[in-house]
């Protein structure tokens, strides 16, 4: 926080509280009320299917949660989903950014097409992939496989988590590309020329000059994407509904299933508290490492 640059005159002490008070109060209520209610519900016996069961549950909801194999599967799925999408989008985004930075005919049109998926809403994107791309009978992939004389793959049955990862990566690749492309464009061309004079080929230029230049932008992409990828929901809801079994159930979908499919508000709230803790752990490490990098 920066201190006000104009020092208050003596005897006329400036009190900023009335000015920032309202917004702080609103934000506090906005955040605290749901948080406290979630914690409170997580300690209650609260199931909509049986309103007669009430009362303080202690840590029963949590115990039930951590002894549920679905919970650990959902944690693993969440981490695999976040990690895989991050790797695909950052690696793919970096390579595409360097590619789209090169002059070639129709570059602006190509950039527009490459960035377009970001404007498609998640539900629509998931439906397109489910019915037009990955469907074993009507989908493009199936048609291609049959044209090659191969058996069509039923993506959501055989590789459910991979399918979700592909869809989410498709949505987030343009974001990474957009951020990284602007970063690539800000690279001083004379640095690349100096590297060429020093004997650096295309690969050495990329490794020693372009990648270090992009490190900051990559950190930003990783941070922003992580925040959103922890809460992926629509793509799963539309395509697999968390299945088969629990193969594509991430934490967000598990909480949804608890609350609105099993009507177990107490258990869902316990899951919500775990999600908050998890998000904060991730945020702590991310902010620490990235803040250090942004200082450079």
């Amino acid at each position: 926080m920066s201190t006000p640059t104009t020092a208050p005159a003596k005897g006329r002490r400036f009190n900023g509280l009335p000015f920032i008070g309202p917004s702080v109060t609103v934000l506090l209520i906005w955040m605290i009320v749901p948080l406290v209610m979630t914690v409170w519900f997580s300690l209650q016996r609260y199931n909509l299917l049986d309103p007669t069961v009430t009362g303080f549950a202690g840590l029963d909801n949590y115990e039930f949660l951590v002894t549920d194999p679905d919970f650990w599967a959902s944690l693993t799925n969440t981490l695999v989903l976040v990690g895989a999408v991050l790797i695909i989008t950052v690696v793919g985004g970096t390579l595409l950014a360097v590619l789209f930075d090169q002059p070639f005919p129709g570059r602006n049109i190509a950039r527009l097409f490459a960035i377009a998926p970001f404007f498609v809403m998640p539900t629509v994107a998931a439906l397109i992939w489910k019915n037009l791309m990955m469907h074993p009978i009507y989908g493009v992939f199936g048609a291609v496989a049959r044209a090659l004389g191969l058996p069509a793959i039923d993506w959501f049955a055989e590789y459910p988590l991979l399918s979700v990862i592909l869809i989410v990566s498709w949505e987030w690749l343009p974001f990474a590309l957009l951020i990284l492309l602007t970063a690539v464009q800000s690279l001083d061309r004379e640095q690349l020329e100096a590297a060429r004079m020093d004997g650096a080929g295309a690969v050495a230029q990329f490794v020693y000059i372009v990648l270090p230049h992009l490190s900051r932008a990559i950190s930003v992409v990783v941070m922003i994407e992580t925040i959103f990828l922890l809460t992926v929901f629509a793509e799963i809801y539309v395509t697999t509904a968390g299945g088969p079994g629990n193969a594509t159930t991430n934490l967000a979908f598990l909480i949804y299933a608890r609350a609105l499919l099993q009507y177990d508000v107490g258990g869902a709230s316990a899951g919500g508290v775990v999600a908050i803790v998890l998000a904060n752990i991730v945020a702590f490490f991310l902010v620490r490492t990235i803040a250090r990098r942004l200082e450079v």
């Binding site: 004379e190 640095q191 020329e193 100096a194 004079m197 000059i209």
Partner: peptide, 20 residues
């Protein structure tokens, strides 16, 4: 012949030092 193999070295106006 490529720039690196001509046996020349260049000093640029912006210096073009590698910042990292």
């Amino acid at each position: 012949v490529g720039p690196a193999d001509r046996g020349l070295a260049m000093v640029f106006q912006s210096y073009a030092l590698y910042p990292h």
